[in-house]
Nucleic acid binder design. Structure first.
Lengths: 338, 338
DNA sequence: TATCGTTGCGCAAACGATTGAGCAGGTGGT
DNA sequence: ACCACCTGCTCAATCGTTTGCGCAACGATA
């Protein structure tokens, strides 16, 4: 690979001149003729600035880390796309990391930051992660922005409008005439689950509808968790006529299990999920869902990280624009008894 | 962040001594006592070698790029996991890149290699990519291994056993008694489509079954392509009683469209897909599928890249172990007329 | 007692890019 | 004619790490 020195030699100038021209420094003070010779030489040699050299000198990598608990998740890919688009526009690169590694996540983050591989990162901690190990990293003033998660005392976060999303989903069932509305939620310690819960409760309260507290399960967000939730809810008496599922993966599992159990959707049970994704429209019946703006969250998170890196400003943001959006498909209908 | 110099100062030795001890060079020739002081100092300062410094000096980043056309694809996440696991075991990191960017892919690759961000890469080119722009990169002796794709003249590749996979899928339908077996394939120029095609044909030939050539559609691998394929196939006379779909996304689309069209699966039409993924088991009916070893392909590809980097050896490999595996669910049955 | 090999380190030169300082030569003002 | 200033470059230090070489001190051998 060609270096600055090679280009300089070919153009008959010094390395500094080349560096200044190619990184177009504001006060390069180079004549038009020389500039042209340099640019030509660089093109002819197909020069590209060496990443390590630049990073070493400038102490900047122009890379932001994106660490999420589970890459497999269909929802995550949207977030990733948003993050990439924003990064690219601003001259950064995204380095993807898993936090579901052997180590509970802290080690990956410490490496990325500690070895100087990234300038900052967007971090989504899973529900299973103890915040304890991360505490020192965050207090170390590293440019870390939390995504859809929270660690007490940390400033710098970007989250979905979970509250609003769950509210819309619940209101949809209310408007269809349901009153026995269950809620298949995530684990109690989950940050997002807490927020979705308040949305659900607020919607019910707003309609002056009361349900037994067993109507809320707090099992988790996986496909299997959804299957379990279905069994728990349908064992209740009276059975719910509608269920708000806090996560699309769990909804897919719940739907599959309902079919196995001979429960017809939407005739016997209406199902609405928070989160839309391409999996939701390809289930049977296609799932009515509240589309959450993961793409925008990805963009916003990266923007926030970069702002933190470049100006030091921090902020806690909730993505409300565009707002969560109800996508009506075929898994919801009015209750039969109504 | 602590540097080698900081550790050296604290341990009262030279930088070289620290470097040799911490990177445990074979001939470090350092006394046990000194070694201990160095190790202690490093731990106390929480020393981590600076990535850029190391990369600059050694001209190695210990990073392999993984570039695929579409991150969103459910199949890809398996490949990614395999790649990550293999890389981690060997002390490498994976840098993920998209080739579905504005540029047709060549630019991303040229940057990653040209700027020295990666030591080598595993590259899956989409069916839409013209190999022309990549030709010079590959002849430039860059350590690039192709994944499930091919560019004429390039050595270094790792592929699925597509042939075998399609063969198994077709044989499954044959064994159920089907004879009018259609094939919803990818685009004609697709490398994998060609290979799956031969497997399909070989299975039919082996059973001495002949079908009209309209029984093969060559539309593509997306959900929508699958929908289109269903319409094309069911417009034929006689209709097929079973269909092998070359890709799970297309199969999901085909299944959804069949339901809309009132075609019952598997009563009216048996559907088997090449590729298993978690989406396949959550459709209705759950899809019978041939599980292809994407995880192993990811591992093998990264292993191959690293071998290429470290020893210069190249190879073209087909992942045959473990072999493709038929997972029978509920989308296939014996034909009604039989 | 010279010579030699070994042990236990330190010195200093790279790697490629950035950037403040410096230095000729020319131009303008007085 | 002298000084100041601007233009158009070059010099050289620096980032953190690796690594070939050198050099004391010391024990062993001749």
């Amino acid at each position: 690979m060609a270096t600055l020195g090679d280009v300089a030699a070919r153009a008959g100038v010094s390395i500094s001149a080349v560096s200044r021209v190619l990184s177009d420094a504001p006060d390069s003070r180079v004549s038009a003729a020389t500039r042209e010779r340099i640019v030509d030489a660089a093109r002819e040699l197909n020069y590209r600035p060496n990443f390590a050299g630049r990073a070493l000198k400038s102490a900047r990598t122009q890379v932001v880390g994106l660490v999420v608990p589970d890459i497999t998740n269909a929802l995550f890919t949207e977030l990733m796309h948003g993050a990439e688009d924003e990064a690219t526009e601003r001259g950064y690169t995204v380095l993807l990391g898993r936090s579901d590694d052997v180590r509970p996540g802290g080690e990956v983050i410490a490496r990325l930051i500690g070895e100087g591989r990234v300038d900052g990162m967007a971090l989504q901690v899973g529900d299973a992660v103890q915040p304890a190990g991360l505490r020192d990293l965050l207090t170390a003033q590293a440019p870390i922005v939390l995504v859809n998660s929270s660690i007490p005392g940390h400033v710098g976060s970007v989250t979905l409008d979970d509250h609003h999303g769950a509210l819309i989903a619940t209101q949809h069932l209310l408007e269809l005439g349901h009153e026995r509305i269950a809620f298949a939620n995530g684990l109690p310690r989950s940050f997002t689950a807490k927020r979705r819960r308040t949305g659900y409760k607020l919607a019910l309260a707003g309609a002056r509808v009361r349900v037994p507290k067993e109507y809320e399960t707090r099992i988790g967000y996986t496909v299997d968790n959804g299957r379990t939730a279905l069994h728990r809810l349908m064992a209740l008496d009276p059975k719910p006529t509608g269920v708000v599922v806090a996560n699309v993966n769990a909804a897919v599992g719940l739907l599959g299990e309902a079919r196995k159990a001979g429960i017809r959707v939407p005739e016997d049970l209406s199902v609405v999920t928070v989160h839309d994704s391409w999996t939701a429209e390809n289930t049977w019946p296609p799932l009515t869902a509240v589309k959450m703006q993961f793409y925008t969250v990805g963009r916003t998170a990266v923007r926030s990280v970069i702002r933190r890196i470049e100006t030091g400003e921090t902020s806690d943001e909730v993505v409300t624009d565009p707002p969560p959006e109800l996508v009506i498909r075929e898994s919801t209908a009015s209750p039969r008894s109504a």
